[in-house]
């Protein structure tokens, strides 16, 4: 029986064949889940999720295990870094900030029968969560922006990976 390393070796050697195979696996998983959800077959979720996971993990591992290729993606990420960070930040914190601000509306429109004590605790929690979220996300955002500026491809090579720590 061939060892796992041998099988892996063959797979990586035939990456051009294996990679589309992995992606086909992912597509199959998505299809299984979509059909299952439309048909209301609960069991397809775990089957589809497993197929997607196997396909995507195999694809990632296959690329990761191969010799590095021309790093176009990194250039792309570096060039679009600021926009990517801004969009992701919006997706991550936009809805929660709206929710936390809206929570105060509950205090304003609160009916007479509302439990004042619990509402005050709710306000306290909302204020706390809003405050710590704003502070942490703002710090992370500004540091990410600064970090991305430093890591632009045309500048990165000059730093030689050394730092001032």
């Amino acid at each position: 029986m061939a060892s796992l390393a041998t099988i892996w070796g063959r797979a990586t050697a035939n990456r051009k064949v294996s990679l589309p195979g992995c992606l086909a696996f992912v597509a199959l998983g998505v299809l299984i889940i979509a059909v299952g959800e439309v048909q209301d077959w609960g069991w397809t979720r775990i089957v589809g999720a497993t197929v997607i996971s196997i396909g995507s993990i195999a694809a990632g591992a296959l690329i990761g295990w191969s010799d590095p290729v021309r790093p176009r993606i990194t250039y792309l990420i570096s060039s679009w870094g600021k926009a990517i960070v801004a969009i992701l930040t919006l997706i991550i914190v936009g809805p929660m900030l709206i929710a936390l601000v809206v929570a105060f509306g509950g205090l304003i429109v609160g009916g007479a029968e509302a439990d004042t004590g619990l509402m005050l605790i709710g306000v306290l929690i909302a204020v706390l969560l809003l405050g710590i979220t704003l502070v942490t996300v703002a710090s992370a955002f500004s540091l990410a922006m600064r970090g991305l500026w430093r890591s632009r491809p045309d500048e990165a090579g000059e730093t030689n990976g050394r730092h001032s720590a």
């Binding site: 998505v30 999720a49 990632g60 591992a61």
Partner: peptide, 18 residues
């Protein structure tokens, strides 16, 4: 489930490359 694929590819790539 669909969105699992992207992070799993990235995760597996990062670990495998290490």
């Amino acid at each position: 489930y669909l969105f699992l694929a992207i992070p799993f590819v990235l995760l597996a790539f990062g670990v495998a490359r290490r």
